[in-house]
């Protein structure tokens, strides 16, 4: 039950490398904030600074309104789930979960009650006497979760907790983490490089790149209105199609019915925001694009058509079975309200 506030937080390592270059984020109480970005974007460093595992070069980190810059991890009342779980290998599952409570001097019977309750919630009750090495990957992940939950901390921190699981388990745990977080109502910060995980989990999504926040907000707002070409190509799978405008000229085979904003240098559209038209039909507004299918990827519920255009390769998402074959020519129409415009620096226009 706490807010987490970052004010112009920076991290400069001893070698002079600046990993985080001034990040400000306000995470409301009970929210799940996801930091997402490619590797090296500073998201893990930022999380470790919130945890107190890295010193803060400048700026302020506050938990529950109190600045914690000089408070060690021991006193911050947070819990963290590590990427490789960091379970104590010499302790049984029970002791792994009880460790944090014991260190804080919780009475023995209360420790026992809380550990058993948490174990029940996470379906770990039958594993309490095992050691971590006797557990499967998924079970270890649950124990790591249990160790965090049992302490009932102010803030949960997750450092890519699902990246060591197989795809099916990852999907399952994703839902579970979301439910747990919601029912416990503990403010959480979650780091991942997986945009799907980020989209599905986040109340507040923060897209990071090169030590800076590219965009922060509700996941769907970010999806619908990416603030930059970076966000546009990072969020969404397959990513947004981007076509560079050479000066103000359009690539070959492209017609624009709508006006081009003055400073636009790149236009983008989501793979699903298209209409495939036959030759007779003309676009009322927006863009009209000629493409040649190069590859077809059927994934069941939908198919992706990878197609070449005068402005480079694009992806088109069509429902169900693909109607086209490699080599076919397509006319792709994009309505004006589905077009995104970006300037020379990659920032959103309009």
């Amino acid at each position: 039950m706490a807010t987490v506030d970052l004010k112009d937080v920076r991290k400069v390592y001893a070698g002079g490398v600046e990993a985080v270059k001034g990040v400000s984020i306000a995470i409301p109480d009970k929210a799940l904030c996801v930091l997402v970005g490619p590797s090296g974007c500073g998201k893990s460093t930022l999380l470790r600074m919130i945890a107190g595992l890295e010193t803060i070069s400048s700026g302020e980190v506050s938990i529950d309104g109190k600045v914690v810059n000089t408070v060690g991890p021991t006193e911050r009342d947070i819990a963290m789930v590590f990427q490789n779980y960091a379970l104590y290998p010499h302790m049984k599952v029970y002791d792994n979960m009880a460790y944090g409570l014991r260190n804080r001097g919780t009475p023995k019977d209360e420790i026992d009650r809380r550990v058993r309750d948490t174990a029940k919630t996470l379906e770990l009750a039958h594993l309490l006497d095992r050691r971590p090495r006797e557990l499967s990957g998924g079970q270890r992940q649950r124990v790591a979760m249990g160790r965090a939950i049992v302490r009932n901390p102010k803030v949960f921190l997750f450092d890519e907790p699902l990246s060591n699981l197989d795809a099916k388990l990852r999907g399952q745990m994703r839902v579970e983490i979301k439910n747990l977080q919601r029912s416990l109502g503990v403010t959480s910060v979650y780091v991942t490089h997986d945009q799907l995980e980020a989209m599905t989990l986040a109340d507040v999504l923060v897209v990071m790149n090169g030590g800076l926040v590219e965009q922060a907000g509700a996941p769907l707002d970010i999806y619908e209105k990416p603030a930059s070409t970076f966000v546009a190509s990072f969020i969404g799978a397959p990513p947004m199609n981007l076509i560079a405008l050479a000066g103000n000229a359009l690539p070959e085979g492209t017609k624009l019915v709508s006006p081009v904003p003055p400073s636009a240098a790149t236009l983008g559209f989501r793979p699903e925001d298209v209409e495939l038209a036959d030759a007779a039909h003309d676009a009322a507004d927006g863009m009209d694009l000629e493409a040649q299918v190069e590859a077809v990827e059927p994934v069941g519920a939908e198919s992706f058509l990878y197609s070449a255009t005068g402005g480079g390769r694009i992806v088109v998402r069509v429902p169900g079975r693909a109607i086209a074959q490699p080599g076919d020519r397509l006319r792709v129409l994009v309505p004006a309200d589905k077009l995104h415009w970006f300037d020379q620096a990659g920032k959103r226009v309009g």
Partner: peptide, 29 residues
Amino acid sequence: IPKALIEAAAIDGARETKRFWTIIFPLLA
């Protein structure tokens, strides 16, 4: 000894001496 274990113990509220006797020393066995 993986660094993450020491960090996990620190977050779990164990101070340096406690960390040594409960995590580091047993793992050095």
